[in-house]
């Protein structure tokens, strides 16, 4: 089976979507021809677009931006729709991760992907909404399906089985197998404060406000 994976993360470095796809790809490799395209880093030429259109399965992995699909991915989806898919049996799956704790907050983006799928007359497979995306890189040494990665592992396993059998499944929303109050404290202590320090900023500077007058653009 020909599978196209679209990585919709706009990050220049390694992203949470990259990591999730590193987890998923071995689960669906089973004699399948898989191509992964990061639309921010790869020129989407005719050959690549044709590969996507001729795939039996298309998987989108992307971060949640302002409760919905990031703008550059939205543009790409519109571009794909204009080309028109000839094979209407293509199955569409997606994995959306967000910076909040609750995977459920990805539901709007997943519903948007369902609308895109229907607009293209393709078959909807399944959506997975992953919470606490910024935490995942800190857990990369913990095996998938264990400890805080337990829920992610279970969800990706269910998704991969549906992909391999070209089946549809209910939308899955997962948060880490880790208390929310700890995650909330750790996001400041292990993510935002150290990153600010790397940039030479004291913690108090993170609360800076811009105070000059606005003008008409």
């Amino acid at each position: 089976m020909q599978i196209s994976i679209i990585n919709g993360s706009p990050k220049l470095g390694k992203s949470t979507s990259d990591l999730i796809l590193e987890y998923l790809t071995p689960l669906i490799s089973d004699n399948n021809a898989i191509e992964i395209y990061n639309i921010s880093k790869t020129e989407m030429n005719e050959q690549r677009l044709a590969y996507i259109e001729n795939s039996g399965v298309i998987i989108f992995a992307f971060p949640l931006y302002i409760d919905s699909i990031p703008s550059h991915l939205l543009e790409f989806l519109i571009q794909l729709e204009k080309r028109q898919f000839s094979d209407k049996n293509t199955m569409v799956y997606c994995i959306v991760n967000n910076g909040f704790y609750e995977g459920r907050q990805n539901y709007i983006a997943i519903e948007q992907m369902k609308i895109w799928c229907a607009s293209n007359h393709l078959k909807w497979g399944q959506g997975v909404g992953v919470g606490a995306g910024e935490m995942l890189p800190f857990l990369k040494d913990i095996p998938l399906g264990h400890g805080p990665n337990k829920n992610l592992g279970n969800a990706l396993k269910r998704l991969s089985l549906n992909i391999l059998s070209a089946q549809s499944g209910e939308t899955l929303f997962i948060s880490p197998n880790w208390p929310r109050f700890l995650w909330k404290i750790e996001s400041s202590q292990f993510v935002w404060y150290p990153r600010a320090k790397t940039n030479g900023l004291k913690r108090s500077r993170l609360y800076d406000q811009v105070n000059n007058a606005v003008s008409n653009k």
């Binding site: 302002i66 703008s71 939205l74 543009e75 519109i78 709007i108 948007q112 609308i115 909330k184 996001s187």
Partner: peptide, 30 residues
């Protein structure tokens, strides 16, 4: 697809400086 146009979405995507990186819980959601 039930949301904004790419340009409008882009402007909104570029607006998160309006918020702080830190979290609070409202209606049992962060």
């Amino acid at each position: 697809y039930g949301g904004y146009s790419p340009f409008v979405k882009n402007v909104l995507d570029r607006s998160i400086s309006f918020l702080l990186p830190f979290f609070q819980t409202k209606n049992n959601e962060t």
